[in-house]
Amino acid sequence: MAFALEFFLRRISQGALIVLAVAFVIFTLLRIAPGDPIRIILGPMATPSAMEETAQRLGLRDPIPVQFVRYLGDIVKGDFGNSFIRGKQGGTTGGSQDAGGSAPVDRAPVIELIAKALPYTLLLAASGFLLACLVSIPLGILAGVRNHGWPQRVALYLSSFFVSLPNVWVGIVLIYLLSARTGWLPAIGYQHIGYVIIPAIVVAVELAPVMIRSISVAVATNVQEPFYEIGQVRGLSARAMLFRHVLRNAAVPLLNSFGAQMIGMLLGGLFVVEYIFSFPGIGLLTINAVFQRDFPVIQTVAIFASTVLVFINIAVDFASTTIDRRLKF
């Protein structure tokens, strides 16, 4: 028990530092990169003095560390700031059109924007991941156990084929085949649950090859461990050894590659897929925010994303050390 407590104490404090560092990196990057958000907020016709005044009011002319500390102070109070662009009513107000109403109070709080977009992203992530699991777990296990037979080849060829397809291409082709040409499924935007099917397939197509590979490698490695065959000589069935022991051992490297690689892929995939399908999740919100130089939104999403990554990695490592007691952390 002491072990678990120390683990969480240490990892959460480390994680907090990491999130802080990520926040600072993104915060600084945004402010040193070219592209002035004021120009977008006020539109091309704004006078230099009006722009300067707005910039002053938003605090964008202070030194970056000062801005960052102020930002952190607000976050501690639970205030992630307001969008530069988006109005309270939702939807893109298109900043340049209403130059007059640029007071930050009229803008939507970032936290609300995210709260509105998050469920969509979660839905897409969950269905995509589930779909990928449905395909890759059976196929990966089969390929891992029959290390030299046809399942291994099928898994290898399938995954090499799909791994070399950009998700944007897969997305477009699926839209064309399943939606534009046949009209079977809806594709662009979101009105009901049906809109999640094609995007989820695209997310799954990106994840599945990597998952199949990781699973088959992890299973194959453990099937070659002496305990698998010796277990059968000891009187246990091959089935029991596979499901009770091999999979348990294979879970450790799998969890690791999930934490290190797949979760990043999933996140990146979500962003792109939401963009392709105009799916109203966090990804679309962020990409639009970047093009509009909407700093508060980008910062908050980056903090959220890295917090999620940090927490998933803590969970993954804790699960690994619980499964395999030899592991240190």
Partner: peptide, 23 residues
């Protein structure tokens, strides 16, 4: 810890932040 920090920024977020802002 530095690699941890770097890995905690998803590629796409980093890319759209840097590339989206510069030419």
């Amino acid at each position: 810890r530095i690699t941890d920090i770097q890995m905690s920024i998803p590629v796409i977020i980093l890319a759209i932040t840097i590339l989206g802002m510069s030419r």
